[in-house]
């Protein structure tokens, strides 16, 4: 079995994954035979033209969607063999999501949003609160704990979503265009936060982005076209200048 640098089982492994929507004339091959290995602690950026299958790939990685062909191994376990409930547990314990639309519960304070996954983990209220607070501190939003998402800026909302993944101690952070709605200054803040957390927590981060500047924060870049991986290479490590 081919081994790469880190030597252990990849956290995420795609083997000839495809995801086909519709049939016949209307058939769309959103993913078309993708092979991919992502190891523990990696920060991977996925780029590509619109409709190239980036979000579809993220959904499959996040066990929100099932591939129509191929094998997806998570930490060496074939996800296809898991029940719907087991996949929910996998999301609960290993995966954190940070999406473009800042997926926070509306009219719910930041702290409660961060607590949400801990509720499903069955953690008692005090400990939950403490861990959520700690996570908010790490993203620099401790003073905003009581604010509803509508009272937070886009960047702050995105940081709350990151704190939510941190509180749940997710190993893998999936970020689909996390800076899509942010100006470049806020975007860089988010990227710096991700880089810092990756270093501190040894998180695995998979991020979809349309911006080269953001992709540059990652250490590996996957370029997709028409549902296929066209390029997979380390990023040029030149820190972009932000004015």
């Amino acid at each position: 079995m081919p081994q790469d640098g880190s030597g252990d089982t990849p956290v995420i492994e795609f083997r000839n994954i495809s995801r086909v929507y519709g049939t016949g004339e209307a058939e769309v091959r959103a993913l078309d035979g993708v092979d991919l290995k992502i190891h523990h602690g990696e920060f991977v950026a996925i780029m590509g033209p619109s409709g190239s299958g980036k979000s579809t790939a993220m959904n499959v990685i996040g066990c929100l969607d099932s591939p129509t062909g191929g094998e997806y191994l998570f930490n060496g376990v074939d996800v296809a063999g898991l029940s719907q409930d087991q996949r929910a547990l996998l999301r609960r314990h290993y995966l954190g999501f940070v999406f473009q639309g800042f997926n926070l519960l509306p009219r719910t304070p930041a702290l409660e949003n961060v607590e949400l996954p801990l509720i499903y983990k069955g953690i008692p209220p005090e400990e939950r609160r403490a861990r959520a607070m700690e996570a908010l501190e790490q993203v620099g939003l401790a003073q905003r704990a009581a604010h509803d998402p509508s009272e937070l800026s886009g960047g702050q909302q995105q940081r709350v979503a990151i704190a939510r993944a941190l509180a749940a101690s997710s190993e893998v952070l999936l970020a689909d265009e996390p800076t899509g709605n942010l100006d470049s200054h806020r975007s860089v803040e988010i990227m710096e936060l991700l880089v810092k957390l990756r270093a501190e927590r040894n998180l695995t981060i998979v991020m979809v982005t349309h911006e080269d500047d953001m992709a540059a924060f990652a250490d590996r870049l996957i370029w997709m076209v028409d549902g296929r991986v066209e390029r997979d290479e380390p990023t040029r490590k030149e820190v972009p200048h932000v004015g």
Partner: peptide, 16 residues
């Protein structure tokens, strides 16, 4: 609907 999506994404099971 969106709230339900979020809950499912962060690991709520259907029966929850």
């Amino acid at each position: 609907t969106r709230e339900i999506g979020i809950r499912l994404a962060i690991g709520a099971q259907a029966r929850q």
